[in-house]
Design a protein around this nucleic acid. Sequence first.
DNA 1: CTGTGTGCAAACTCTTTGCATAAGT
DNA 2: ACTTATGCAAAGAGTTTGCACACAG
Lengths: 134, 134
Amino acid sequence: MPQSGANWLVKAGLRPTRQRCALAALLVDGGNRHLTAEQLYGEAARADLGVSLATVYNTLKAFTSAGLLREINIEPGRVYYDTRIDDHPHFYFEDDGTIADAPVGSVAFASLPEAPEGCEIATVDVVVRLRKRV
Amino acid sequence: MPQSGANWLVKAGLRPTRQRCALAALLVDGGNRHLTAEQLYGEAARADLGVSLATVYNTLKAFTSAGLLREINIEPGRVYYDTRIDDHPHFYFEDDGTIADAPVGSVAFASLPEAPEGCEIATVDVVVRLRKRV
DNA sequence: CTGTGTGCAAACTCTTTGCATAAGT
DNA sequence: ACTTATGCAAAGAGTTTGCACACAG
């Protein structure tokens, strides 16, 4: 039976199964999060939610298609999911490979390119890569 | 014996082997390119350059460490290498998964975040994701 | 000569998929 | 009931690695 996060799922047209509700709760509760499938699976396993790794992958994809999450591609061979779905910039710490939201409003564009013929801009991803100062 | 692209390698402190020179020539000749290891390997194989896939991977990594190329992470599970190494924005066509340089100067920042304590900004990656207009 | 680069194949990581079972509406 | 999701294990894609041989300095 639907619990926390169930409305979220139903509104997006997703069937609120036990596993999806549990994962949705994990995602929503933590505030703005950036995590990989493995990380979420780890949390779910630690909390004994009875969710398999394949389901975590399927669910994250389903949530993303439904517009509930956003993919972030920063590191090769590792997809992060962001619980914030608006266009916003990220910090990437090259030293430890972690991701954080950059301060709200810290990035503003003076100009953006026109979309080529027949296209429109879907999103503008900005990643500020940081390294330790010398 | 070093040919096209050899200086490029030597200046970066890389030993100009036959394979590296051949790959460097492919990379330099095409102008600004965005390609994956597999694509470069395909070109090398088609041109009978006698370069193995492993060497293509090793070489691309070596070139990147030496500052001759830049990695682009846009699609999950697939690393693109860019022959332009300055900070510049990219178009990503979601429909066919191709990458292109956005027009020079088309993206300008009105503001950028301050780097957190102890860090400095290495690069700012901007990806403008495009989809077909409805 | 000496050390680094190359090539092959096997290993590895992350992700996806096929199919039988379970659960939602 | 009917449809869609889950779970497992196996497959798949892209990338990395170990080791013997080859080549540049």
